[in-house]
Amino acid sequence: MLSMVGLVLAAGLAGWVDAIVGGGGLIQLPALFGAYPQAAPATLMGTNKGAAIWGTGWAASQYARRVTLRWAALGPAVAAAFVGAAGGAWLVTRLPARPLRVALPLVLLALLLYTLARKDLGQHHAPRFAGRAEAAWASVLGGLIGLYDGAFGPGTGSFFVFAGVRWLGYDFLHASAHAKLLNAATNLAALAWFGTRGHIWWAVALPMAVANVAGSWLGTRTALRHGTGFVRGVFVAVVGALIFKTGWDAAGVLGWR
């Protein structure tokens, strides 16, 4: 019972963080591993997706109602992200995860330093592309990050946000809004893969999903009220936490701790 209460609280906080800038898995997945240390990792990852997709979907619907989205580019990108995530889920059974685990904190650190160095990054919404060019680039980014999410996962929401800001020219608020729909697509692909293989504990996932949606509702309202400067600040904090977490994991892989 106490474990379930802790998981519900963690899911609520994860939904708040994820709705603003992504990275809710940084909170929710470790909570599951802590509550069920003997469970199969695939089952805990599937349960995490089973809880998280509802909050991500809720946030996506709320942003779609309140932020002007670039649907001509977003539609193909969502499809590419779904296919990429499905391919990544298949690929993870064929390739070792060790190189990704070692490289990830370095990639995140480079992303964080670039964001901090560019004070104006993501402050203004000035899309770099239009029409087919925007759809093509958004699809390439959606497919590549979707592939990463299916194969590995940590920081996917943050990668979507950064790609929208740095490459597509969106501000942080619009990038986060677009990232929610892309992340919902990758979560759906992963959910289908885990679900068909019996790797979801729905009795655990559904109470967490309710809390995740509640946190997502609050997070969406917070982001919309405070705007792009607030989203940028949360982005920096979440990426910093991801660097610490993935760096700690990489140290274990390399035998440094």
Rank of each mutant, 00 (worst) to 15 (best):
Ala211Asp: 05
Arg232Tyr: 05
Gly215Arg: 10
Phe235Gly: 14
His226Met: 14
Thr220Pro: 12
Gly233Phe: 10
Thr222Val: 05
Ile200Arg: 06
Phe230Asn: 07
Leu218Gly: 04
Gly229Glu: 05
Met208Phe: 02
Val238Phe: 03
Gly219Tyr: 05
Thr228His: 13
Arg225Met: 08
Val234Trp: 06
Arg232His: 02
Phe235Ser: 12
Val231Leu: 09
Thr222Trp: 11
Trp202His: 01
Leu224Met: 01
Ile200Ser: 11
Met208Arg: 03
Trp202Ile: 03
Val231Tyr: 07
Gly233Met: 14
Ala205His: 01
Ala209Leu: 03
Phe230Arg: 12
Trp201Asn: 11
Trp217Pro: 04
Arg221Lys: 09
Arg225Val: 03
Thr228Tyr: 03
Phe230Gln: 08
Val213His: 01
His226Ser: 14
Val236Ala: 11
Ala209Ile: 01
Arg221Ile: 01
Val213Trp: 04
Arg232Gly: 03
Thr222Ser: 15
Val204Ala: 14
Gly227Ala: 10
Val238Asp: 04
Val210Arg: 06
Phe230Tyr: 15
Pro207Cys: 01
Thr222Asp: 11
Ala209Gly: 06
Gly215Val: 08
Trp217Ser: 13
Ala241Val: 09
Gly215His: 07
Ala211Gly: 12
Gly219Val: 02
Val239Cys: 13
Val213Glu: 09
Thr228Gly: 11
Gly219Cys: 07
Gly233His: 14
Ala211Pro: 00
Val210Tyr: 00
Leu218Pro: 07
Ile200Lys: 08
Ser216Asp: 06
Ala214Val: 13
Arg232Glu: 01
Leu224Gly: 00
Thr220Tyr: 05
Pro207Trp: 06
Ala214Thr: 12
Pro207Asn: 07
Ser216Phe: 03
Trp202Phe: 12
Leu218Phe: 14
Ala205Lys: 01
Arg221Cys: 00
Ala241Ser: 14
Phe230Cys: 11
Val238Leu: 03
Leu206Val: 14
Val234Ser: 12
Val236Trp: 00
Thr228Leu: 08
Phe235Trp: 14
Ala205Gly: 00
Val239Phe: 06
Val204His: 10
Leu206Lys: 00
Thr228Met: 10
Ile200Gly: 08
Ala223Arg: 12
Trp217Asp: 02
Val210Met: 06
Ala214Asn: 05
Gly229Ile: 00
Thr220His: 04
Phe230Val: 04
Ala203Val: 00
Phe235Tyr: 15
Val236Glu: 10
Ala214Phe: 13
Trp217Thr: 12
Trp217Met: 12
Ala211Arg: 03
Ala223Trp: 05
Asn212Lys: 04
Leu218Val: 14
Ile200Asn: 12
Ala203Trp: 03
Val210Cys: 13
Ala237Thr: 00
His226Arg: 15
Asn212Gln: 11
Ala209Asn: 02
Ala241Pro: 09
His226Pro: 00
Val239Ile: 15
His199Lys: 09
Leu224Thr: 05
Ile200Thr: 09
Ile200Gln: 11
Thr222Gly: 07
Phe235Gln: 12
Gly227Met: 08
Trp217Gly: 13
Trp201Arg: 13
Val231Asn: 10
Trp217Tyr: 15
Gly233Ser: 15
